[in-house]
Simulated assay, not measured.
Amino acid sequence: MSKPILGVLASGRGTNLQSIINAIDAGQFAAEIGVVITDKPEALALERAKDAGIIGICINRKEYNTREDFEKALIKELHAHNVEHIILAGFMRILSPLFIREYKNHILNIHPALLPAFVGAHSHRDVLEYGVKISGCTVHFVDEGMDSGPIIIQSAVPVEDNDTEDTLAARVLEQEHIIYPKAIELYLNDRLQINGRKVLIKS
């Protein structure tokens, strides 16, 4: 039986990509990463892909006049590598309905806060400014809104009085590396059922 093929989209260091590579290597779930695509040529995720023997490609957003043209290039490349499921791993682009419809209910993302609170690109800053006592991370399906898709798994992280964005981010990232592979495992093993806004985990 062939393994499901994942396409990982990243923009930065690729630490969540690495946690997924490690989970596959450890046999946590059966899958193949068909391609890693970044939108920035300097993204370290490309080096992680190369080190793991995975095809890594940059589709530079700056080289496309419109978001539609950029996303069509993404989709073309994903199709070329027979990708069935999309894993966003620090991909700092909001995907349009064009892309979402192409892979509806087959796109997972991890967000460094407890959704629905603190959406967007500056979660740790916003958490500290607001003064909440607990933050964390969320794995969710991607829909056409911003960080608004049905929630799969969350993990809570206490916010310390002396936290900076960097110290909080580091502790949240540790949990990201645990729950993202777990969520992918549940997803690929067909244990997730979307029921409106709720995701039910089947035994």
Rank of each mutant, 00 (worst) to 15 (best):
I194E: 05
K104M: 11
D166T: 13
L78M: 10
P4C: 07
E68P: 00
L173W: 11
P158Y: 10
D69T: 02
A156M: 09
I94P: 01
I152Q: 07
D126H: 11
I20R: 06
F99K: 02
H122P: 02
N109F: 06
K198F: 15
K40W: 05
I33F: 10
V127Q: 01
G120Q: 00
G131S: 04
L95W: 02
L192Y: 14
L200W: 08
D51N: 13
C137G: 03
E42N: 13
D190Y: 13
G120A: 09
T38F: 02
Y180R: 05
G56D: 01
S148C: 07
E77F: 00
D163N: 10
S19Y: 05
V172R: 12
I57V: 15
K40A: 13
V8N: 04
T66F: 01
P158D: 06
L128F: 08
L78D: 01
I179N: 14
G34H: 07
L98P: 00
T15L: 14
L186M: 13
I33K: 08
I151H: 11
V159M: 06
L78H: 02
V157S: 04
F141W: 03
P158T: 09
G149N: 03
V36S: 02
D143N: 13
N189R: 08
I100Y: 05
N109M: 06
I194V: 15
I184P: 11
R125V: 07
S155A: 14
L46E: 07
G53A: 06
I57T: 14
I24D: 09
I194W: 11
A169I: 04
K3L: 15
E68F: 07
L200P: 00
E84H: 09
V35D: 00
L6P: 10
G34W: 05
K133D: 04
D190A: 15
K76M: 02
M1F: 12
E165L: 05
I94G: 07
A121P: 00
N16S: 14
V132Q: 05
A23E: 05
N162P: 04
L9K: 04
E71S: 05
E174P: 00
A49H: 04
A169F: 09
V199P: 00
S123A: 15
K198C: 07
H79W: 09
Q193G: 04
L78C: 05
G149H: 07
A31Q: 11
V119H: 04
D161R: 07
I75Y: 09
A117Y: 04
L186C: 13
T138A: 02
K50T: 12
E176M: 13
L44C: 02
H81C: 01
I153C: 03
A169P: 00
G14V: 08
D126M: 06
S155Q: 10
G149F: 09
K3A: 14
R13N: 14
P116C: 08
Y180K: 11
N65E: 14
H140W: 08
I20V: 15
Q193T: 12
K72L: 12
V199R: 11
R101A: 15
A45Q: 02
T66C: 03
E144M: 10
G145T: 03
I179V: 15
G7F: 08
E160R: 10
